[in-house]
């Protein structure tokens, strides 16, 4: 039950300390997270798994500054983000965090290239062209840059989102079921890229998924059930994850 990792602030890209999240009030209160403490190491690919309602997405939202815990604290690097106001939090998301969502990741009015540099442009900065080009090449998007999202396949759209997530060299990339809406070939391609980003570029990636195969691309898998972190696994394989999930009763 209490197999949480020891907190290691020096190398943690993000960590949560005793965070709980309750929805509703009174008798109708639902606890999505109950006193969760996790530490996510820099330069690692972490997957968060769990059955529906386990609180895995809620945890990701807390860590990414998209939502606030009812109690407890969240740190991004050494910054305590729980008490930041909306503006500071927004700027933090813009500059330090990359996002890949399950669907509707891109602005329909902008080309792929424009979508990739969106957060940088929001910040009013100039993108690092060499860096962006290297990411685009890695994702095989070079000949798709002028296309609008509607002219791209689901897999291509998700790769554009991945490129956007990495373009501003964020401290950490959060991916919420990134392969949920993709066919398996596209999913594999995207996961391969995330893996590469971690291995070759030293990027920290945290991904929520319910797919054991997807989880097997991670360095470490955190298992959530019923609002608690129940276990973890390093160097996971798809079979091992699947077995564990069966054991959890998912």
């Amino acid at each position: 039950m209490s197999a949480t990792t020891t907190i290691a602030p020096a190398t943690a890209a993000a960590r949560a300390e005793g965070i709980s999240k309750f929805y509703g009030t009174g008798d109708a209160t639902i606890a999505a997270l109950k006193d969760v403490s996790v530490s996510l190491d820099a330069g690692m690919f972490t997957a968060i798994m769990g059955p529906s309602g386990s609180g895995k997405s809620t945890l990701l939202h807390m860590l990414a500054g998209l939502d606030r815990p009812t109690s407890g604290e969240v740190f991004l690097g050494d910054t305590q983000i729980t008490s930041l106001n909306d503006k500071a939090l927004t700027l933090l998301r813009r500059d330090q965090i990359g996002f890949i969502f399950q669907s509707f990741n891109l602005l329909p009015t902008m080309s792929a290239a424009e979508n990739i540099v969106l957060p940088i442009r929001i910040a009013g900065r100039k993108p690092d062209d060499i860096w962006v080009k290297s990411i685009v090449d890695k994702l095989g998007l070079a000949d798709r840059l002028s296309h609008r999202p509607t002219e791209l396949s689901g897999g291509q759209q998700q790769r554009v989102a991945a490129a956007r997530a990495l373009a501003s060299r964020p401290q950490i990339v959060f991916a919420d079921e990134p392969t949920g809406a993709l066919d398996s070939a596209s999913g594999t391609e995207l996961l391969g890229f995330l893996r590469k980003a971690v291995k070759e570029l030293g990027q920290t990636v945290v991904m929520v998924t319910h797919d054991p195969t997807a989880a097997s691309y991670a360095d470490r898998v955190l298992f959530l059930a019923d609002g608690h972190v129940v276990d973890e696994m390093f160097e996971p394989t798809a079979d091992a994850v699947l077995d564990f999930m069966k054991h959890l009763g998912a």
């Binding site: 998209l66 909306d86 503006k87 927004t90 700027l91 998301r93 813009r94 500059d95 996002f99 969502f101 509707f104 990741n105 891109l106 602005l107 329909p108 969106l118 957060p119 929001i122 910040a123 956007r164």
Partner: peptide
């Protein structure tokens, strides 16, 4: 709505 949410998620401030 979704677009606005996306923009806010990737760092557009309310003022923007």
């Amino acid at each position: 709505t979704r677009e606005l949410g996306l923009l806010r998620a990737v760092g557009m401030t309310r003022a923007q």
